[in-house]
């Protein structure tokens, strides 16, 4: 990739909005995301952050605005104007999605190796040995023992499932990964290990990440920039340390003081 295109944002979100009938899901969200950048979207439940994530990952159709993505070939496309085939292809190659509930992102009845290998097979890899090798490699990178490769994730602990889900997403070297509360529901010690791993992977691979979380500690540890949402709108945005150390909006102040003290 040339330095020239690296100056361009990977993702441009322009006045994005979603209404559910008369109720507002989110409104007027604009931002740019550059390669290698991690953006945290924080807010309480009902703030619109999950709606936003569903829009960004094209699982929901917006009622207003546009999302432009710089494809691997350098062309910039409106993701909602991609054909269904293009969009599904994008989602299983250049994008990843890590769900809070690993069962939603994994095939629970299929072995760990096949879970990791599925994306490779989906894009046409037809060599069992290579697929297995790639799966072993990725299991290692997410710290899952090689001898678990033929076990189904049903037998995995919560933390392992989450790491497996990450490996399954990263095997095609995506450039953009969406994460929905990836540490939610895990024990504190397990969370710490997972966050550590994620931080390492994101830095090593130069991933762009949009992570939705209600946990400001997660945002501080992983993200470069932060967006605070309330009632469907972005109320504050900036560098993570800046926003968390010196929040401007009274709501953000409340959020920071109530959570970070714990």
């Amino acid at each position: 990739m040339s330095a020239l295109t690296d100056d361009l944002p990977l993702l441009t979100v322009d006045r994005l909005g979603k209404n559910y009938g008369s109720r507002i899901g989110c409104r007027d969200v604009s931002f740019e995301l550059y390669a290698g950048e991690v953006l945290a979207v924080v807010g309480e439940s009902g703030s619109g952050k999950s709606t936003l994530l569903s829009l960004l990952s094209t699982q929901l159709q917006p009622t207003a605005g546009a999302i432009r993505y710089r494809m691997r070939d350098g062309s910039v496309r409106d993701v909602f104007e991609l054909s269904q085939a293009e969009r599904r292809f994008l989602m299983r190659t250049d994008w990843g999605f890590v769900h809070q509930d690993a069962a939603q992102g994994l095939r629970m009845a299929v072995s760990a190796g096949a879970n990791v290998g599925e994306r490779l097979m989906a894009v046409g890899d037809r060599h069992y040995g290579n697929i297995r090798h790639a799966a072993l490699d990725w299991l290692g990178r997410v710290e899952i023992e090689a001898d678990r490769i033929d076990d189904a994730p049903r037998s995995f602990s919560g933390g392992m499932r989450q790491r497996l889900q990450i490996a399954r997403n990263l095997v095609t070297n995506p450039r953009l990964v969406f994460m929905d509360e990836p540490t939610g529901g895990l024990d504190v010690s397990v969370q710490a290990r997972l966050l550590d791993l994620l931080r390492g992977l994101v830095a090593d691979l130069g991933l762009s990440v949009i992570i939705v979380t209600h946990d400001l500690a997660v945002a501080r540890l992983l993200s470069h920039r932060i967006m605070v949402m309330r009632q469907g709108r972005v109320i504050e945005t900036g560098l993570t340390d800046q926003v968390l150390d010196d929040p401007r909006e009274p709501y953000t102040q409340l959020l920071v003081s109530s959570v970070l003290q714990v």
Binding site: R88, S111, A114, M121, Y128
Partner: peptide, 22 residues
Amino acid sequence: RTMHGLEEYGLMHVKLYEDIAT
């Protein structure tokens, strides 16, 4: 139907992969 329409047949190979692994 969508999978046929978009020629998304990776899942079938997942099944064959599982056979070999098992």
